[in-house]
Design a protein around this nucleic acid. Structure first.
Length: 106
DNA sequence: ATAGTGACTGAAC
DNA sequence: GGTTCAGCCACTA
């Protein structure tokens, strides 16, 4: 299985209305420093409707992927799940943060 | 096999 | 405390 698919697996496990970070996913997969690769994987998942890439943001809760997601599309999807978004940033990010390492306990 | 790139992150100035 | 620099991993040319 490609590293990409592993990323998608975790991404698909993100509960509705919650968000996570590239670093968290990377850490969960073992490559804590491979956050960039995670983002890259999500880039490929962009065309996959099965993967909620819109729930993945950078470490500060900013929709860094919005630019590659199709503009406001990402923001709309998040708000549709009850996630408040302001200036491409997730409000209450700290509360909505979902860490696979903690939630899934490996 | 080497070099370059990218939705990031952490440390230094 | 905000901005800048360098390091990381996986993938493509």
């Amino acid at each position: 299985m490609d590293f990409f698919e592993q990323v998608w697996e975790v991404t698909k496990l993100i509960p509705e209305g919650r968000v996570t970070t590239y670093g968290a996913i990377a850490k969960y997969l073992g490559t804590a420093r491979g956050a960039r690769v995670v983002g890259w994987a999500l880039n490929q998942s962009n065309m996959k409707a099965d993967v909620p890439a819109h729930r993945v943001v950078n470490r500060v809760g900013m929709l860094s992927g919005a630019a590659h997601f199709g503009g406001e599309q990402m923001k709309v999807l998040l708000e549709a799940e009850g996630i408040e978004v302001k200036s491409n940033k997730v409000l209450k990010f700290k509360e909505l943060f979902w860490d696979p390492v903690t939630e899934l306990e490996v």
